[in-house]
Each structure stands twice: as structure tokens, then as C-alpha cells.
Amino acid sequence: MPQQRFPKVEVLSVAPHFISFILSETDTSMANAIRRIMIAEVPTLAIDLVEYHENSSVLNDEYIAHRLGLIPIRFTPEGSMRRVPGGDCHQAFLPHRECVCYDRCPRCSVEFELDVNFDRVNQTRPEQERDLPLTVTSTDLKSNNPLVAPAHFLNEEEQDESHDEGISIVKLGPGQHLKLKAFARMGISKEHAKWCPVAVATYRFWPIITINAEACGMLTMEQKQELVDACPDRILELDEATGNLVPAENAYEMATFTEDLKTTQEAMKKRPEDEDFVSVVQSTDRFVFSVESTGAMDAEDILLSSLRVLKDRLNYLASEVENGLK
């Protein structure tokens, strides 16, 4: 294989719900492929079928079903599966359409039950809360699989700070009752956005900031300051001590490659053909990724899972090519 490259990943920060890393020594197509897979092809669980037994709430059946579908469902692999690269649910479940069962089975779906009766709950509520509308949340969904539960939107550190008690589904008033069975299935976001594991999955090009010291020497302090102010993303700083323009420490996080800097410089130059004072160009082989999870998977797992999907697909392609050549 000519020009084989060995992409590198350098993790900048990692938290359960967020990961930021640098992907380098590869090109845009690879970066974009990973982004696209993370958004659209990482398999997750989401509620796909709802059976209503009673719904006397103010929202209609489809509306509640739609809301249920959008609740991130978290699968926590146990034991040996825990640290399998690409720890998504694809090994634990079968896609619904590929399952041999008649309707549904624990291999392809997870059953949730929800039964909230305002009048019943009301009796057990403290005096000051009594008769106030009751919010049915994702915590009311009871799963039949101990490994699967509605995701808590917040990570553990933030949990104490807020009084978030799950994702609201509907509010109930006196006499209202919601009883349903919901079935979560595995799927990918290509089919429906509810299977999307990421809130944001994006990358940006690494900015190469070159400061032409010689040209900058000709500038007054005011002009330098003007250049600093021209960037809404604040990638430049003025060194107090030396009076030199320097790139900001975390410029790679902030650089947006806007045209503002360019237009300001054009105005400052004596001749249009003069060299740029500062240039910000995109690196072609270094990408800063940031991925934020919806809560359905850990951000790290999303990345690993996406690489797994990519690998599977390449393997599939390779085998098809081989078959085709035969």
C-alpha cells in the first residue's frame, strides 16, 4: 500500500459525556467519515414501539410515543463485555429485523413499563405538593433488562448540583392515568434521529497561525491591538512585555477561520501585494474533534464504536472486493 499513513489520536480531555481529541496524520475524508459515523451509524437503543393501556393525559398517544422515543436509553455492558473496544450494544442485541423471533424477544428488544396514576401518587405526596400537576419522567420507565435503563441526562459530578429528576414526559392532573408498555430496539440514526448517540460530533481543522514578525515590526501598538480585536474568536494576544503578537494559548479551540482578520489586514497594508502580518490557515492533516453524548453512551465509547463500525464496513468492502475479483 503506497503512502500508508498511521493516524494518531491524542486525547485532550475526557469525561463520561464529553470527549475532545486530536486526530492527526490523516486527511479530511477520514475525519469526516468518523464524524458521519458517530452521528448516523453508531447503534444504540431507543424506544420504537409503544403499547398504550391507558392514556388519559392531555397529550395524545403519538406525541407521548415521540417523546419516549427521544429519551436516550443507556446500555451498560457487564463483565467481560465492559472493556470491549466499541462498547456499544451491537453485540448484546440483534437488530429487530434480523431477529428470528415472531414479534419480539429479549434478544432484540427491551421492554419498559410505565404506570403512573395521579390519584394514587397524590396520596403519598407531601402536603405542600398535593394536587399540583405530577410530572411523569423517564425515571418512571421500568425496564425488564437490568442492563438497560433510561439515561440520566447529567453526568455524576453534576447530578448533585441540580435537582434534575429525569426527562419529563408528560404532566398529569387529577384523575389522569398513563399506563403503557414501551419497547426499545437497537437501531442507527440513519433511520431515525432518536438512535443518535451524540448531541454534537464535530471537528475543526487545526489552525496554523503564522505571525510574520518582520512585517509586524512595522505596526504600531494600536494597529496590533486592532488586529487582536478583529478576531471575534480571540486567537491573537498582545504580549504585554515584548509588545509582540502571539497566538493565544488555546487558539486551536477557538479559531473559526473567519474572514474578519483578512479584511482588517487588507485595510492595514500599504500595498495590496504586501505579505500578511498574521495568517491563519487550516492544517490539512490535523483535526480537533469534540464529541458530546446524549447520555445513551459514554463519549469515549461512541468514538470507539464509530471506529469499530468503520472497520467493519471496510472489512465488508474488502471481502466484497475479493469476492468480486474471484
Binding site: 475524508s29 475525519a31 474568536d233 473559526t256 477561520f257
Partner: peptide
């Protein structure tokens, strides 16, 4: 907008979702 780190006139460089490359204009 500038205070929030955006371009003064509300335009932004966008990446094409298909190719992943930055599009030419803000």
C-alpha cells in the same frame, strides 16, 4: 455576536457535511 465569539455580521465558515471541507465563503 462578537462578544459571544461570532462574526460581527452573523456569518460563519461552514463545513460541507458531504466532503468535510470548509466551504469557500462565510
Amino acid at each position: 455576536l462578537q462578544a459571544a465569539g461570532y462574526n460581527y455580521y452573523g456569518s460563519e465558515p461552514l463545513y460541507s457535511g458531504v466532503s468535510g471541507c470548509l466551504m469557500q465563503a462565510d
